[in-house]
Design a protein around this nucleic acid. Sequence first.
DNA 1: ATATGTGAATAGGTTCACAGCC
DNA 2: GGCTGTGAACCTATTCACATAT
Lengths: 176, 176
Amino acid sequence: MSSEALAVAAGVKPTQLRKDLTYFGQFGTRGLGYDVDQLAQMISDLLGTNRLQPVILVGVGNLGTALLSYRGFEQEGFEIIAAFDADVRRPRDKALTVPLYEMEHLGRIIQDRGVKMAILSVPAISAQSVANQLVDVGISGILNFSPSMLTVPESVVVNSVNLAIELENLSYFIQQ
Amino acid sequence: MSSEALAVAAGVKPTQLRKDLTYFGQFGTRGLGYDVDQLAQMISDLLGTNRLQPVILVGVGNLGTALLSYRGFEQEGFEIIAAFDADVRRPRDKALTVPLYEMEHLGRIIQDRGVKMAILSVPAISAQSVANQLVDVGISGILNFSPSMLTVPESVVVNSVNLAIELENLSYFIQQ
DNA sequence: ATATGTGAATAGGTTCACAGCC
DNA sequence: GGCTGTGAACCTATTCACATAT
């Protein structure tokens, strides 16, 4: 497949796609294009999604519950192996398939299962305190859904997704 | 409040914050800083979040249900006034507070309520077809949660959030 | 003939440094 | 004295143009 065709599929320009790929090596054949399987394998290796990665989720409220039942993660090679909440007895409307634990078991489970990444879906007010706990037990990546700035050591990576801001963004660009 | 203090709160550099603000005007006082209330008002005007904006949601599955019960949107001035699904009778585990309609009522409700923006949380397979329907009934902004590239007319703005990609992103940066 | 890989050119965004104003 | 606003300098990212390989 040519960079032209791949670029159309990805919604970028062909030169952009080629330039980006070359930062990681040479994967195409001149006059021919790219081997899609080989390319997918390479990207999967690069992202670490070639083998199933265990992930935990902290904060099983509305959003947390939805993220637990969201199929998209496992399709990309992630498995949410455990969920944690400050109140495990709080009423929840769905029979969870993922085991739900008290916060005190965080350290043990992360260590036992070699978990590197955590999904954080707690209210803004407790986000920093839970982030601190995650850092303490050795988590190295946090996907933060709470609308708050997290302060963490340099060695820990935070990726924040703020759903309300995504809507605000859209609201700005459609200028009413 | 100084740009220094605001920048710390926002997690950016003070010069960045000042430069960005000046693209929309002059809001600070030299030697003194910014009036926070006035600044918040200005940004709210700019984003169109100064008055409550009606929004609809299409696709009431796992993620859609969660988004409906997510409080973050209304806090920022958005109200999800209606939800739509191809199958309104599909079993759902939560008593929805938002009215749920068949897709055929899309046009009428959008017109009646002056809705400009839609949240799209349908499976990837039906995303483009539903996006087309949204465009047809006059929606001008789509917040897309499905893992697919949407093709829409120039006049329509799409903002895509792919939760799995956000995790992959994190996975890459923590290089295992 | 066709399509990649890449240096050079261009565009875009961030930071610096300081003049200007309170 | 303190802090904003902003041109200039710098850095990063995208696009062009074409040599290179099949």
